[in-house]
């Protein structure tokens, strides 16, 4: 009995930690209190927002492909979950990169709606 309780506890905590891209989409849509619009996310990704860079400057306009850091030229693994199973699985990483990259590209934090749209668009890429 104690054993099965332990196993249950492990399963529950593992389930709480591991996240899928869909979990993030649900979270952002909930925070935005509106459904995501993938097409709007695609436009957001390719556009500049007052600064020199767009998302696609480093991630390319087809983020199923590897990108290149605009400053250092270092290869960036594909951003689209279909091409890179590690993307959008860690809350700490997702929050960190949105914080940094939105600041560089948009000059502020991205809104939950922008994140939802963007991720919905990334999930359409195969």
């Amino acid at each position: 009995m104690r054993h099965s309780l332990c196993i249950l506890a492990i399963l529950v905590s593992a389930g709480a930690m591991a996240q899928t891209p869909r979990d993030f989409l649900t979270r952002f849509e909930k925070e935005a209190a509106a459904p995501a619009v993938a097409e709007r996310g695609g436009r957001f990704f390719d556009a500049t927002h007052g600064n020199d860079w767009s998302c696609s400057t480093c991630h390319t306009t087809r983020p199923t492909q590897p990108g290149r850091h605009a400053k250092t030229d270092k290869t960036i693994a594909p951003l689209a979950p279909a091409a890179n199973a590690e993307r959008f699985t860690s809350p700490a990483k997702v929050d960190k990169w949105f914080r940094r990259n939105c600041n560089d590209v948009v000059g502020r934090e991205c809104s939950a709606q922008e994140k939802a749209d963007l991720l919905a668009w990334l999930l359409t890429l195969k």
Binding site: K71, K96, R99, R100, N101, N103, D104
Partner: peptide, 12 residues
């Protein structure tokens, strides 16, 4: 780090 050679590289 938030202003790391023109890039936000902030960390916890």
């Amino acid at each position: 780090l938030p202003r790391h050679f023109g890039v936000d590289a902030s960390l916890d």
